[in-house]
């Protein structure tokens, strides 16, 4: 009988001991996982907020940059360009009125040449800053002009294909950002390699557009350890996020580059 009571007491002691220890262990584990999870969530939210803030700063930066380019292009065209033209006209008048001596003729010819070169340079800079074709005729024509410029330089063989299934559904901001992306991709193709052939395809679809870019340059391995996208690529990604377009890039060492952009306009 005595043994039985002692046995029950031991059983009770062990059972209570096991339960208390398990309770403590579970409490600690639950506290650890729940609190850690909460902490992780808070950390992630703060990080996402910081990223969004940085992204916003970048967007503002890009927008300011574009506005500044637009302003400089306009100033170059309207102020300097027009004044150069006035200068040219006055020089013509001067040439007619001035006595014709070989020295004066030579000097006037030189001034003409300098003014022409300056007008051309001003026009080029102004066009580079903001292509008037993009403003006046839209993305498709601006890309065509850009490709023609590269083709004329003889550095690369560019093919440009347009498929217009539907009228363009993009706006000026979207067009400008897509144009800048193609400019960046082309600059990269020329810089790293350079590529010998480039294929640019633009497909205007109902409610959006698809842009594909392929080059036969040296490419790069985005999965290589330590690979970090360059500033140009980061800029492209930011611009695409800014207009809400999907951007995909495929490349491998020695296998060129394929980039695709899918833009859907918000109705």
């Amino acid at each position: 009988m005595g043994t039985g009571i002692q046995g029950n007491e031991i059983l009770l002691l062990i059972t209570v001991g096991v339960l208390i220890m398990l309770l403590l262990a579970f409490a600690l584990v639950a506290f650890f996982f729940l609190s850690q999870r909460k902490l992780d969530d808070e950390r992630r939210t703060a990080y996402a907020r910081e990223l969004a803030h940085r992204e916003q700063l970048l967007y503002s930066n890009l927008q300011t940059q574009e506005e500044e380019r637009r302003r400089i292009a306009k100033d170059l065209h309207d102020a300097i360009g027009s004044k150069l033209n006035v200068l040219l006209l006055n020089l013509h008048r001067l040439q007619k009125q001035a006595p014709a001596t070989p020295e004066i003729d030579e000097t006037v010819r030189e001034i003409f040449q300098v003014i022409h070169t300056t007008i051309e340079t001003t026009r080029r800079i102004s066009h580079d800053l903001l292509p008037p074709t993009l403003e006046s005729f839209g993305l498709s024509e601006a890309l065509s002009e850009l490709c023609a410029q590269y083709r004329q330089s003889g550095a690369v063989d560019i093919q440009y294909q347009v498929n217009e299934e539907a009228p363009a559904a993009s706006n000026k901001t979207v067009d400008l950002n897509l144009f800048r992306v193609v400019q960046e991709l082309l600059a990269n193709s020329m810089k790293h390699g350079p590529a010998k052939q480039v294929l640019l395809q633009l497909q205007l679809q109902a409610g959006g557009l698809q842009l594909n870019y392929t080059d036969d340059g040296p490419g790069f391995d985005p999965k290589a350890p330590g690979y970090r996208p360059g500033l140009g690529l980061q800029n492209i990604e930011s611009r695409m996020r800014m207009i809400g377009a999907e951007f995909h890039i495929q490349s491998a060492s020695g296998a060129g580059l394929r980039a695709s952009i899918n833009y859907k306009s918000i109705a």
Binding site: T3, Q6, G7, I10, I14, G17, M21, A25, F26, F32
Partner: peptide
Amino acid sequence: SLVSTAILIYNAGSLFIFMFAKLLNNGLLS
């Protein structure tokens, strides 16, 4: 964290059983 949880729960739960294992084997319990 899962490994630590496993180690913590198993050893906390079975600590009392092994502490009294000698008594268990001595026939004090049914």
